[in-house]
Write a protein that binds this DNA or RNA. Structure first.
Lengths: 329, 329
DNA sequence: ATGCAGTGTGCATACGGTTACACAAATGAA
DNA sequence: TTCATTTGTGTAACCGTATGCACACTGCAT
């Protein structure tokens, strides 16, 4: 508070050495006598000295800060991944700065702000950010786009998701239960990921000569899943709803059960996507196209490590989804 | 990528002025000719120049970084609050650094790391951090402890929660429905908040001459809520379970229904705490002791603003919880 | 013409570290 | 013993920006 933090120069005086020596005491592999180092560390501890990371970053050209651009913090699917990623970053002594924003212009503003902090890495967890914007704003830091559109761009690394096989499996099961009238309940209209996910299922249907009988758009929330499903079920006769994520699927399941009196899986099949922990709760037990979150974050960390190692060129990793079987389809 | 970020000195050369003038062009209220400023801003835009926030922080002694110490990112209750807080911080051009850690030693380590970044504010959302540790580690930044133990410490500001009136109301309703045998399902044993919450209900029971008939400890997760409730209901005859948070309450509800065949609210009353959005979902419709998240974050921001304004002394704000009535009690 | 307030700019220094270079002392080899 | 090498430390320059101070210039009243 009132008491200012002690600087290396002051500590140098206290320890009877130069500030360069103080610096060396705190740099693991630098030429310094071990007796000197021990003495300095003792004095440092005594006075609560820690090197100033801001000053160090300025000098190093390395801030050890990582910008995480996310759509939302509460969203369960992202949250599980964010949590894993934050832990992994921290284990490498990297500090995550969260950029979380719904509005488009604010988001760009925010990314510009973060870029002035000379972040070492940028992980874009949001499909609401265009690759071009990311590259422009962080022009000195190669961004990592997560589950992003498969455009090739030499300035971007990415983790991509392939759920087509799992979608095929799920449609197969539902169709063999005798259901033929499928609806798709999308997340946001503007989301690229949503279009990709939808495509997996549409293609899977096409392979069996089926097409979507109805379609609706929500916003990934429970409420939108509930409300849109009510409307959907009133206007179209369908016996299966594929939802853009698990939370909407839970909403759809509730809508079918409470408003229409239809139960899963007999009257109607309901499928989610993400494979969040909540999907496996006893009260939900959702059939869902799920992704291994750990593998996912492993992939992100691998890209970060590649960037750190200054390996040339961008890189991209593709992960495959699997079906999780519950009692809703 | 390879192209280094341009510095103020380089831009100065390009614009035919000194670097001091560049700096002034980017400082809203400093003596500079408006023609010069406009020209500089134009050249800056052209070359993608933005002042380096790290260097600026070093000079200013003000980083505009805020450390957020949280237990977890996924936990729905915290997540809703975190999301609100992050938005509010960003609106003030403050960047949040998330420190998220389960392990005690790692957490202290992490806090020390963040403190070297000269964060302007520290918000401790975790009841797993002792006030003393917070003060010691961030000795130049007065921490803000959120819903923390009501110890008075001149170096700490805090937001406190009072749910005693709401607990009273809830117990009143349940007792008047004829239920007398209450159990309490705690979150973690070591959590201070958990003890506080439990006390509200124990006191409310005492006022009616009732005591807890059984008790169990979980870890705030659905699974622990489910598992502990099964054990609890097998070993004790109770007709009401008060849970440490909403997620555990959902687990308890499922356990009662699926394993014991007991339905709420007739066979058993189940009460949550937090008032997360999910509690109001149709499939849950939980009765819960809930907190107004917006008011809560307003309080946190008020404390941050007080610190910014260098108002003397710590300050603490107490918020009152309310009952949310659902169909589980 | 003189003095004076106000305005716009540059110079130099500070912020708190890191590190290339120089140099002395210690070590080892001959 | 002498020279080469290694080791430990200090000096000084630098990272990129902000700002106090000095100075030149303008405009205006005296």
């Amino acid at each position: 508070m009132n008491k200012r933090r002690i600087t290396s120069k002051e500590l140098a005086k206290l320890a009877g050495v130069s500030s360069a020596t103080i610096s060396r005491a705190f740099s693991p592999d630098s030429r310094i006598g071990s007796a000197t180092r021990d003495r300095i560390l003792a004095v440092a501890r005594e006075h609560g000295y820690q090197p100033n990371a801001i000053a160090r970053s300025l000098n190093n050209q390395r801030s050890r800060l990582v910008a995480l651009v996310v759509n939302a913090i509460g969203n369960p699917c992202e949250a599980e991944e964010q949590q894993l990623l934050v832990h992994r970053l921290q284990a490498r002594q990297l500090l995550p700065i969260i950029l979380c924003c719904a509005d488009h212009d604010d988001r760009l503003q925010l990314m510009r702000l973060a870029s002035t902090y000379q972040v070492d890495h940028v992980v874009i967890f949001s499909d609401m950010v265009s690759m071009q914007d990311a590259v422009d704003i962080f022009h000195t830091t190669k961004p990592i786009m997560v589950s992003f559109e498969p455009l090739d761009n030499e300035k971007v690394s990415s983790v991509r998701i392939d759920g087509s096989a799992a979608a095929d499996e799920i449609i197969d099961k539902i169709a063999s239960d005798g259901k033929k009238r499928f609806a798709y309940l999308s997340g946001t209209k503007s989301s690229w990921i949503d279009k990709l996910r939808r495509k997996w299922f549409v293609d899977a249907l096409a392979r069996r000569g089926l097409t979507l009988q109805a379609e609706a758009f929500g916003d990934y929330s429970y409420d939108s899943g509930f409300k849109e499903s009510v409307l959907l079920l009133h206007r179209a006769k369908v016996d299966a709803i594929i939802c853009g994520n698990d939370v909407m699927a839970i909403g759809a399941r509730d809508a079918a059960r409470r408003v229409l009196g239809k139960n899963t899986p007999d009257d109607i099949a309901i499928v989610g996507q993400d494979g969040i922990a909540m999907a496996a709760w006893d009260c939900n037990d959702l059939t869902t196209l799920s992704l291994d979150h750990v593998a996912f974050i492993d992939a992100v960390m691998e890209l970060i490590e590649r960037h750190d190692a200054e390996l040339e060129g961008p890189h991209s990793i593709t992960l495959t989804c699997t079906a999780r079987w519950g009692s809703t389809a």
